[in-house]
Design a binder for these strands. Sequence first.
DNA 1: TTGTAAGCGTTATCAT
DNA 2: ATGATAACGCTTACAA
Lengths: 342, 342
Amino acid sequence: METYTIKDIARELGLSTSTVSRALRGSYEINPETKRLVMECAERLNYRPNPIALSLKGSASRAIGVILPQVANYFFSQAINGIEAIAYNRGYHVIIFQSQESYEREMANVQQAMSRKVDGLLMSLSSETSDVTHLQDVLDKNVPLVLFDRVSSELNVTKVVADNFGGAFAATEHLIRSGRRRIAHLTIQPWLSITQERLAGYRAALEQNGLEFDEALIRYGTFGPDEVGPMVDELMHLGSPPDAFFTASDRLAVGCLQALRQRNLHIPDDVSLIGFTNLNVADLLDPPLSTVVQPAQEIGQLAAERLIDQIERKHRALPIETVRIPTELVVRSSTRLEAVKL
Amino acid sequence: METYTIKDIARELGLSTSTVSRALRGSYEINPETKRLVMECAERLNYRPNPIALSLKGSASRAIGVILPQVANYFFSQAINGIEAIAYNRGYHVIIFQSQESYEREMANVQQAMSRKVDGLLMSLSSETSDVTHLQDVLDKNVPLVLFDRVSSELNVTKVVADNFGGAFAATEHLIRSGRRRIAHLTIQPWLSITQERLAGYRAALEQNGLEFDEALIRYGTFGPDEVGPMVDELMHLGSPPDAFFTASDRLAVGCLQALRQRNLHIPDDVSLIGFTNLNVADLLDPPLSTVVQPAQEIGQLAAERLIDQIERKHRALPIETVRIPTELVVRSSTRLEAVKL
DNA sequence: TTGTAAGCGTTATCAT
DNA sequence: ATGATAACGCTTACAA
């Protein structure tokens, strides 16, 4: 499986490289017969244009960069799957960079992606990122950028996100309707868009149902597996302790479930628990975990579609919008399973 | 954040591009003073060499290609994490390709990786792959290749795998020791290396314990979520039905657990179950799932390390070997669970 | 010690 | 309709 270049074809056919190049890309100004010969020869040699050379030349690299915090994560790995599926169909390659939740690394990743001449960039911000000038630079260079999941309000770009507000609202309201009054909310870093939206949904549900929003029931942070337990204890020892937990991530949901179990708190008799998570075995857990599920794959697909649309129609201005995809609240109990679409 | 080239530095300093190039890479034959000037200027302009140009030139691209079946998978996403960590430390980028378990796509991926001039290739074979000539081509082009997890015996390359034989042996022996005699084995495609090794471990454990190896208890395939149930039924209706299940993948383990639960079979009183899986909430399931865990991240790290070693010391011949990393058998029982329910 | 020029694979701009 | 040439950013003989 040798690798041939335009030069080889040119030599083989006694033509110039420019003619071959034109023939290959079906230029109208070349002899149909020549075209046929070139095509046939290219086919025979299994010619493949060198993407590196193409990129260097400045034209499309047919690669899109994906920068996200972590691959080993239920949500993101599913999202990548969606991205890759669309990209593959439309003839693009996906170059994945992990920021590992580090602002430093995210900036380095952006640099690298740019210098690898990706045709566009798909990003979900690291939890350390607040300043987004590195992304403004991307836009200034006219490289299409689409944000998904963890987005920034400071950038005027297309964003694809789950309906975090709606999901949080539904979860909280469900807890209220089932009689809960003191709902704790364990969440991640407060400056992230998803955190704010979920918190807003939680708060709105409380207020619309005449319940007080109590800061004492909110916990922000990056929690390791061993840190959730103490936090649960802390909350349970409040003057008026929570009768339910609403958690904002996979890890928090699992950590909280584990903590509650270890403390012999029965769910949902003692406390209720709903987690924002894409864990796909939630129904097999003990007890089954009620979840707000983000359509990760769909988010990835949509983000990739928007990005490639932008790449391919650079001339026309495409509308900049925020696409919000509904989440699904799946309430699970040991006896029944009901899905509520928002 | 403009992007500067060697030319810019050369112009700025009134030097030639070659001098700048040499200075940048610290060639011994240039004036220390000039070197200093160049370095200072490069620093000031935030100069970054263009990797595309480097690749085209034929030198290192400092990128490694990773071709694997699926990102959205417990094992692979963790492995990627390990790979990326090592690659980042050693100054390499990771370009990920998903074969989606398709031989066609795997070949296309290899082509693409090659034409993107990756410095080396890390692969786990698709479940459709039996012919490996596309990988022999890679080797013929002197591109370092390391296989992990799903490997091929036909290629003389370094391989990093979990100790599948040992894990399967341990799991099976554990089941036998706990009194099981008819252990069904649900597994994936028979031609995959991991399938064969696990089957061999299972068989060896049976035979060393004086139990008969019964083909009727083995099921191979790609099972969707709905197909495991019928298969379990089929097995349970055998003249002498299984009293235990040993499953070879995440999906099979979860599917089997679900099927057994739905059929009200109690674990481990009616049947026992151990799964080869990297699911990280196995202890929270109902009942807790005993697992054979592969050190996915470590496998990724080791594979990446070997590959980069090979890339960087192309001159010396590095030993070709198969690294086998121990798996961990985690036996979980529901005793704690019952305590909670009291 | 530094500069010149060729070359990596491709395409765009001029010729012819 | 086709060919020659320059250019993309960088490295590397070879000259000076």
